[in-house]
Design a protein around this nucleic acid. Structure first.
Lengths: 344, 344
DNA sequence: AAACAGTTTGAAAACATTTACAAACTGTTT
DNA sequence: AAACAGTTTGTAAATGTTTTCAAACTGTTT
């Protein structure tokens, strides 16, 4: 695709200099408000700038300064509240620092993500934030030497990237513990597609938690589905086809949980009387729903802020510096979708 | 904020040229796959590129070509399914054409939006898409001379921008008609905050529809609230405080409707037996909810695609060309949240 | 009035590419 | 072998900034 629009020409720094009767260097100094320009010249320059409607050409500026004030943000799906909330946190923080974000969406397609990853090295961004995994691992070592990298909920480990990991082990321990206390012993699990790193690690944590409580895991009550209301609906339908021996379902995401809860009620089940359902994620106003969903929540917006701050911090550091690992704390938020197991 | 990281230096076209024993022009030709380079030289160049790990500097390229392959997308809130869906449509279409998107989020803050709008003129993007209104009107005439502009659901009119407007009149006519057929005569209205252009125009369309059906509008059953589940909850609470003379509520958004429906049921009302509630928007899998929501839906993802295509089309056109006005069709999707009015 | 330090300025180089133009090769045809 | 047309290549200008460095001003002190 060729882009060939005849732009109405911008005025240049040369024209401003000519009009103001000074050198381009002086104009540049005024633009970058270096206060070594005398007042009378500064005034002349500002006047010329206003008259010519001059705005500096960012490409030339980037070339001269070797700074683009841009950060790439790569997500698998923008239609996901938790991810959108993280992006919002990033956006607000970077915006405060006059850094723009270049948004890339892989649409859960590993090949697209790979392509984005590879193309990043020629994008002229001063940093990149990758959120959530989709498909294969990338080798960040080369890229991390050039620009600061932040990974949120991703598998890659590397000494030079900053990582933010949600404490899945604790999350699953908390939710399984909560269900255990309510008397649940047969707990089903509904998670994302098996190709997803995030699903797989969460399942591992779930199994760990079961072991801790000496609960056995029933293979037939393990369901992979998509991260959506419909995924919750279809997952529940497949689960119930196999029988209803479980008393609770731990879902890997709130949308799945909401889909499952609503479908269960539509089918005539009572939640939580017939079985409990829990979610996981960051979902706004989840307490407003009926029934409200018991969930493990993490501070998505805040994670975004932290990620952006990590990038900004590295901007200023001399060269290439060790990354940090941050474990994000989770919080059990009890709702109406879980309850005491019925004594049969 | 100063960005001062010591980047590991990229290799340049000069180094490649030297290593390959050719001129920089030849390297440039290879990079832009112009097939006027002889095979032996091309091979040498490619070898040198590979060995030096050369990737062209985008800023220099932009400067030379006067093309940045970037489009700005400005939204009031990224945490909104309909907007996110539009962005997704834009993203996919632009990505196919190797155009990147620069995402700006005004966070529903008119001043931030204004700032973004003004800063756009110095961003070096080949196009801009503004989605939904937030606050004051902007004057797009100057910007539109330089780059193609697409406005989605915004008030500004201008001969040179492409506009996409949802057919609000038809939407409200359809939903009021649907409720009228079900016997409803006293219809409340819950919309966004009064500062929002989108809310205001929708309300106008709602009033028009009422008139068409000879229904009177009761001032006290008009509620402004926020676009969220909680907004729906709080709106409904305020509405019910004023009495319960209405038999239906037309909400300006699905999140408001969902919040209201769930809250109503929690309060002990039966929906739609006690009153009907309708939504408006694009919301994924809304039919999975319990009850499913009657809503007016518009093709958000597709609108995004169309918007991006409009931009791409203008890229290729000579200079500055008339814009188009597209009215987006809406569709009534009947759910379980609306029903026949109870004969009292 | 000369010397000096400090401030303000401008010329020109640097940034990394694209591209217009001319030169140098091809391979035919006379 | 000269003339020609077509292809391939290189030189150098152009793109619009920032920044280095030296020069030209200041105003003070001797």
């Amino acid at each position: 695709m060729d882009i060939n629009r005849n732009e109405k020409k911008r005025s240049t720094i040369k024209e401003v200099a000519k009009k103001a009767g000074v050198s381009v260097a002086t104009v540049s100094r005024v633009m970058n408000n270096q206060n070594i320009v005398k007042d009378d010249k500064r005034r002349k320059v500002l006047k010329a700038i206003a008259e010519l409607n001059y705005v500096p050409n960012p490409a030339a500026r980037t070339l001269g300064k070797k700074q683009a004030y841009k950060v790439a943000v790569v997500v698998p799906n923008i239609m996901n509240y938790a991810l959108a909330d993280i992006i919002k946190g990033i956006q607000i923080t970077l915006d405060d620092n006059k850094v723009d974000i270049l948004l890339f969406n892989s649409n859960e397609n590993p090949e697209v993500e790979k392509r984005i990853f590879l193309s990043l090295s020629d994008k002229l961004v001063e940093g990149a934030i990758f959120i959530a995994q989709c498909g294969s691992l990338h080798d960040f070592s080369t890229l991390a030497k050039r620009i600061p990298i932040v990974l949120i909920e991703r598998a890659e480990k590397n000494n030079y990237v900053d990582r933010f990991e949600i404490n899945n082990d604790d999350a699953m321990l908390k939710i399984v513990g909560h269900l255990y206390e309510l008397g649940h012993r047969k707990i089903a699990h509904m998670t994302g597609h098996s190709s997803s790193y995030n699903s797989k690690t969460l399942t591992k944590s779930f199994l760990k938690a079961l072991r801790k409580y000496n609960l056995q895991f029933l293979d037939e009550y393990f369901i992979n589905t998509s991260y959506s209301f419909r995924g919750g609906k279809e997952g529940l339908e497949r689960l119930l086809e196999k029988g209803k021996d479980f008393t609770a379902i731990v879902c890997a995401s709130n949308v799945i949980a909401i889909g499952a809860v609503n479908t269960a009620i539509k089918m005539g089940y009572k939640i939580p009387e017939d079985f409990s359902i829990s979610g996981y994620d960051s979902f706004p106003d989840i307490d407003v729903l009926n029934p409200s969903i018991t969930t493990i929540e993490y501070p998505a917006f805040n994670m975004g802020k932290q990620a952006a701050e990590a990038i900004l911090k590295k901007f200023n550091s001399e060269a290439y510096r060790l990354g940090s690992d941050t474990i994000i704390k989770v919080n059990l938020s009890k709702g109406e979708s879980t309850g005491k197991v019925r004594i049969e």
